[in-house]
Design a protein around this nucleic acid. Structure first.
Length: 569
DNA sequence: GCCGTTTTCGGCCCGACTGTTTTCAGTCG
C-alpha cells in the first residue's frame, strides 16, 4: 500500500472528526501526520510488513501509528468505520458549501433534519433556515446561492486552464495606472497541478481606494461584496480574491497569500520558537516591527534557507537534504523526447519538428509515435516504423548540429511484453513503454505487468507511470515504489509527462526516486507545436518535488544522452 | 493527538470578514 493511500484514509478521518466538532488540535494532529506521510521516502506498509524498526515519523505517535498498522492490514481502521457509520453523509456534503463549516452543518442537520442538498434548498425556499438561531435572511440567501455553486461544482481546474484566466487578469492589472504593484499568489503561484481560485495581492497608488476602483471597472463577471481590504470577484467561473495592502506590506502579504496553509503553520511555529511573530503584514519581534523587502528576507530573518513558491506545500521544504537553490529550470532542458508525428496521431512532420526544436535551441529530439496496438491513435505497423527510421537516418545525415533519436511509444501489452519483435526494436535508439489499455487489473497484476516491461532491455523510459488524468480519471492501481525501484535498477528513466492533464509521475514521489538514484525525463508528449510548450508544467512539478538538474535525463547533452541510451553513462 | 535541552502536562499560528448580535462565534485562507 502506498503512503499516499494511507494518508488519504487518515485525511478522511480528520474530515470526519472536524465535522463532528472534535477538538481542533486533534484534527490538526491528523492533518499534520498526513503531510508527514506524503513527505516520506520509504514505504511504510513495506517497512511494517518486513518487521524492520519503523523510523520515527514526525507527527505520528502511538495512536496514529496503530491506525496506520490497521490500515496496512485491513485497508481501514475501526475508529474511522465507527465515525463514518455514525456521521450522516449530508454533514460532509453540506460542509462543501462555502460558508458552511462543521458547526453550521451540524446545526442545520439537527434542527431542520435535512438529508440532502435538495432538502436544504427547499428548507431555504420555505424560509426555515432563516428562523434558526444564529442564522438570518442573509445567511439563508447566501447558502441558497452557494448550493448552486456546489451543484455546478466550483471545481478545481487544471493549472493550465487557471493560467488562461490568470494571464487575462495579469494583462488587465498591468493596464491600470492606479495599481502600483500586484502579484497573483495562492496555489497558482505555487504551481499546484490543480487550482481552485486565484488570490491577488495588490498595492494601489497612494490615496487611491484601489478595490473600489477595480469594482467599477466592469472587468469581472461578478463582484461579490467585500471590505476595504478584500473583495471577492468571479471571472470565467473562477473565484478571484483581491486583497489590498500598503507598499511596505507587499512582500509579507505576497508570502502569506502564496501559502500553503501547511507551510505557514509550520513556519509560524518556527517563528514562535525564535520569539518572532509572522503575519501577512510584517514580522514582529516583541512589539518591534521588522521591515521586509523581499520574500528572501523573510526566510533569512527566520534563520531558514529561501524556499521557492513551488516548494511551499509543507511536505519537503523543511528537510535539510534538499538544495532549493539548485532546482531544475526550463533552461536546463537540452532536448525533447516523447514527440508524436503525423505518422500516428501527431500533426507535425519530421521536418516541422526539426525546425521547431532548432528554433528553441534544443540539441536533440526523440521521436516516439504510437505503437501498432494503439489502433485508435494510428499506431505504426512494422513497415511504417521501419520507413520512419530510414527517414530519420536521412535527416540526421544532413544535419550536423541537431540529432533525432529514433524511438517508439510502445504499448505495454497485458502480459507486460512490448508491441514489436526484437528484430524491429533493435533498430531503435529508445523505447518508451506505456500502458494505454487494460486498466482494470489488480494491483499485483498491474505492477508485474509494468515491472516486466521495465525489465525489457529495449525499454529506456517508462511513460506516464500511473495513467492518471487529472480531474477525470484516477491512475491505475500500481505499486509505485516497486516501479520506481525497478526503473532505477534497470536504468530506465521515469517520465514526468508534462501534459497538464497528466503531470504523471506525481511530484510527491520524486524524492523517493532521488533517494534511489533514479532519473526522471521531462516529456511534453507533444502531438502538435503547441504541445511542446507543456514542458513548462513538467518543470514546475519537478521543482515542486525538489528535483535538481542532474536527476533529469534530458538535461544531458547529445553525446551524454547517446551514451545513456547505449547503457554507457 | 503529538510533543518536549525551561515542560510527561499544557500548550499547539494568525487575522479578516460576515452575520447576527449587543460582544462574538463561525468560517476562511
Amino acid at each position: 500500500m502506498e503512503n499516499a493511500s494511507i494518508a488519504k484514509i487518515l485525511e478522511e478521518y480528520a474530515k470526519y472528526l472536524e465535522i463532528n466538532n472534535e477538538d481542533f488540535f486533534r484534527v490538526r494532529a491528523y492533518n499534520a501526520a498526513v503531510r508527514s506521510l506524503l513527505g516520506l521516502d520509504f514505504n511504510i506498509a513495506e517497512k511494517l510488513k518486513s518487521g524492520e524498526d519503523l523510523p520515527k515519523i514526525k507527527g505520528v505517535g502511538k495512536n496514529i501509528l496503530s491506525h496506520i498498522e490497521e490500515i496496512v492490514n485491513f485497508g481501514t481502521f475501526q475508529e474511522l468505520e465507527d465515525i463514518k457509520s455514525n456521521t450522516p453523509e449530508i454533514l460532509i456534503v453540506m460542509n462543501k458549501i462555502p460558508g458552511v463549516g462543521a458547526k453550521k452543518a451540524y446545526k442545520i442537520y439537527k434542527e431542520l433534519r435535512v438529508n440532502s442538498l435538495g432538502e436544504l434548498e427547499y428548507a431555504c425556499i420555505e424560509n426555515r433556515l432563516a428562523m434558526l438561531e444564529g442564522f438570518g435572511e442573509k445567511s439563508q440567501n447566501k447558502i441558497l446561492k452557494n448550493i448552486e455553486y456546489v451543484k455546478l461544482s466550483m471545481q478545481r481546474r487544471l493549472l493550465a486552464d487557471a493560467g488562461e484566466t490568470a494571464e487575462k487578469i495579469r494583462r488587465f492589472f498591468e493596464s491600470l495606472n492606479y495599481v502600483e504593484k500586484f502579484e497573483i499568489a495562492g496555489s497558482y503561484r505555487r504551481k499546484l497541478e490543480t487550482v481552485k481560485d486565484l488570490d491577488l495581492v495588490i498595492v494601489g497608488q497612494e490615496g487611491s481606494s484601489v478595490l473600489e476602483k477595480i469594482s467599477n471597472e466592469n472587468f469581472f463577471d461578478e463582484i461579490k461584496r467585500g471590505g476595504e481590504k478584500l473583495i471577492s470577484a468571479v471571472l470565467d467561473g473562477m473565484q478571484v480574491d483581491l486583497r489590498c495592502f500598503d507598499k511596505s506590506e507587499f512582500y509579507s502579504a505576497l508570502h502569506h497569500f502564496t501559502g500553503s496553509k501547511a507551510h505557514h503553520e509550520q513556519l509560524r511555529g518556527i517563528a514562535k520558537s525564535k520569539g518572532l511573530k509572522i503575519n501577512e503584514y510584517c514580522i514582529f519581534q516583541g512589539d518591534k516591527r521588522i521591515e521586509v523587502n523581499s520574500e528572501e528576507e523573510i526566510y533569512k530573518i527566520l534563520g531558514l534557507k529561501y524556499v521557492p513558491p513551488e516548494m511551499r506545500e509543507g511536505i519537503f521544504e523543511f528537510r535539510d537534504d534538499i538544495d532549493f537553490s539548485n532546482l531544475i529550470s526550463e533552461k536546463d532542458i537540452k532536448g525533447i523526447f516523447h514527440i508524436h508525428t503525423n505518422y500516428s496521431d501527431g500533426s507535425m512532420g519530421l521536418q516541422d519538428i526539426l525546425d521547431y526544436c532548432k528554433s528553441k535551441n534544443y540539441k536533440y529530439a526523440g521521436i516516439s509515435d504510437h505503437s501498432r496496438s494503439a489502433f485508435y491513435a494510428g499506431g505504426l505497423k512494422d513497415e511504417e516504423l521501419l520507413e520512419q527510421i530510414e527517414k530519420i537516418d536521412a535527416i540526421n545525415a544532413e544535419n550536423s548540429e541537431f540529432f533525432i533519436f529514433k524511438g517508439i511509444e510502445s504499448d505495454i501489452l497485458p502480459d507486460g511484453s512490448l508491441d514489436y519483435s526484437d528484430d524491429v526494436l533493435q533498430n531503435l535508439d529508445f523505447v518508451i513503454a506505456s500502458v494505454h489499455s487494460g486498466f482494470n487489473m489488480t494491483k499485483p497484476e498491474m505492477t508485474e505487468r509494468i515491472v516486466r516491461a521495465v525489465n525489457n532491455p529495449y525499454t529506456k523510459i517508462l511513460g506516464h507511470p500511473t495513467g492518471r488524468l487529472l480531474l477525470s480519471r484516477e491512475g491505475y492501481d500500481v505499486d509505485v515504489y516497486e516501479i520506481i525501484r525497478q526503473c532505477c535498477r534497470n536504468n530506465v528513466a521515469i517520465e514526468l509527462n508534462c501534459n497538464p492533464y497528466r503531470l504523471d509521475i506525481d511530484w510527491r514521489y520524486l524524492q523517493v526516486l532521488v533517494k534511489e538514484g533514479g532519473k526522471v525525463i521531462l516529456c511534453p508528449d507533444a502531438h502538435s507545436k503547441k504541445g511542446f510548450e507543456d514542458i513548462k508544467y513538467g518543470v514546475f512539478m519537478a521543482r515542486k518535488g525538489g528535483l535538481p538538474p542532474d536527476c533529469v535525463l534530458n538535461t544531458l547533452d547529445k553525446k551524454e544522452m547517446t551514451a545513456y541510451l547505449l547503457g554507457n553513462f
